[in-house]
Design a protein around this nucleic acid. Structure first.
Length: 117
DNA sequence: GCATTGACGGGTT
DNA sequence: TAACCCGCCAATG
């Protein structure tokens, strides 16, 4: 599975692709994606990529991507500050004070989920 | 071209 | 525990 990603050349496309692979009701972190793509040191780029996600033709469930604390740091990029939380809660994730409850429990690790043959 | 600013993360103090 | 600092790289003025 991970092999397919290797065929994609653009870093941003990889990011969007991984994000799209996140199952509903699960979340991951920018760092996890960065690590998975082999650019762990450049986790900031993930956020930058996400900023452009909205202009992508294909939908990118950016609400399933939070920072390593499970904090909804990018919610204000959804137009409304409550959209992100509501989307997550609609998928069965509880959010309190912009913080995902049981973050580790809902955490989706691309390294594990995609690297398994 | 330089300085500043991030949807970040990890290590130090 | 929290504040702080540094690396990383693209975009912006």
């Amino acid at each position: 599975m991970a092999r397919i990603l290797l065929f994609m050349s653009d870093f941003y496309d990889k990011v969007y692709e991984v994000v799209r692979l996140i199952p509903a009701g699960r979340v991951t972190s920018y760092g996890a994606i960065a690590t998975f793509l082999g650019t762990a040191q450049s986790s900031r780029m993930i956020g930058w990529a996400m900023n452009n996600a909205g202009s992508q033709e294909k939908y990118v469930p950016a609400h399933r991507v939070v920072n390593r604390n499970g904090l909804l740091t990018g919610k204000h990029h959804f137009g409304s500050s409550t959209v992100m939380q509501e989307l997550l809660e609609a998928e069965g994730i509880t959010v309190v004070d912009d913080q995902i409850v049981d973050f580790e429990k809902h955490f989706w690790n691309p390294m594990i989920e995609l690297d398994m043959e």
